[in-house]
Design a protein around this nucleic acid. Structure first.
Lengths: 208, 208
DNA sequence: ATAAAATATGACTAATCAGTCACATGACCA
DNA sequence: TGGTCATGTGACTGATTAGTCATATTTTAT
């Protein structure tokens, strides 16, 4: 977590530094991300970074936190499906919200993908806890859906969670790749909506 | 590709070097993998590496190639399903073979995961071609299955490929994580077989 | 035995890195 | 004005990196 010094910074300066640091850690592996490059781009002295944060790891974990809050904040703003929504409608909403959030905060999203997809060169308790919370969210969703009879109860919950999480995780990549020539303007396009619908339909009814 | 000098090396020395290099690149990001550490472990001079390979990138791409061949070779050894097998039986066989190969060659598999999952700090034509070949293999499989009526033709082939590839890609991780306390001996266990069956069944019939 | 070709070596270069610290500059209050 | 505290600074340390190259050793052919 940042030191008080960082929080005391004028909004403008703090935001500028944050954006540059986010960009660096979103674009490079933890070990390759360079504090030196960040301070050069930000036009500040290297020592300043260590007035703001304990070390590189502290800065990185803060950036993860900031990114998480940005994404979560956005997701919670999107209107949730009404309470009568079934498992698949809820999933569809979550898919859409997650991808839209990644559209709105592409740098934050890239940073989070990096942070969660490949193992970090250090252990962090808080970070691991966040992972578990995300897992338990899905576990609960699945368990509830199964007891409500919306989900085939032959399947073990952990397998359902695996399938759903795999697809959700890769979908962002897939869309980004698919629309990489149409920067940004595919946010709520029918094409994307159709993709969501198709994935949900496959999950619901199967391929056969 | 390695220089002739490397290929002239006595089998024993070559294999020892390869294993140490594979381990280093499987365990570290490309930028963090250290030639210096490799030569220290191998007990050879640093200059020797540059008698064997043009540079770090050349070595890395060769290791990817070696890993690919090891995995492919193993997969092709496993008895293929008979020619009357449908799409899902073929998929099931490919799943099993891939995971078994990752069991037999865990280091190679880790290296390949790293190479294909996160973007490399350089571009390589050969590498990209290999990616496309893998994609086209699935495309063909899906197209054939759809025209044979084994696959719901409502779905766009690219979406089916996306779903199947996402699950196949994550399944290795999932199993590794699930059995991380039972090193190695879950190779052909009923537990694993059941997992394959369940994933295939979900794909086939859906979750509802 | 001798010459030539192939291979092995490790000290060295130039670059980069995270992190430190003595000092400078600024703000704020008495 | 003088004093205290927060903030900013950038040269510096020690470690590490990929890659080079003149030299040494070994192998091969004559």
């Amino acid at each position: 977590m940042p030191k008080q010094t960082f929080l005391n910074l004028p909004e403008e300066k703090r935001a500028a530094f944050l954006n540059i640091a986010l960009e660096e850690f979103a674009g490079n592996e933890y070990n390759s991300a360079s504090i030196t490059k960040i301070v050069e781009k930000a036009g500040i002295a290297k020592g300043s970074v260590y007035q703001y944060f304990r070390d590189k790891q502290d800065l990185f974990l803060y950036l993860v936190d900031v990114s998480n809050q940005a994404m979560m904040g956005f997701i919670q703003q999107t209107p949730p499906p009404d309470s009568s929504a079934d498992f698949f409608q809820t999933l569809r909403w979550q898919m859409s919200a997650t991808v839209l959030a990644a559209q709105q905060f592409p740098v934050h999203a890239r940073l989070l993908r990096r942070a969660y997809s490949s193992p970090l060169p250090f252990q962090d308790e808080v970070f691991e806890k966040a992972r578990q919370v995300r897992d338990q969210h899905f576990q609960a969703l699945v368990a509830q859906a199964q007891s409500a009879g919306q989900l085939d109860s032959r399947y073990r919950p952990e397998m359902v969670v695996f399938v759903v999480q795999s697809l959700m995780g890769e979908l962002g990549n897939f869309l980004q790749n698919k629309f990489k020539d149409h920067p940004g303007d595919w946010v709520g396009s029918p094409e994307v909506d159709a993709t969501f619908d198709e994935v949900i339909e496959i999950l619901k009814s199967g391929l056969a």
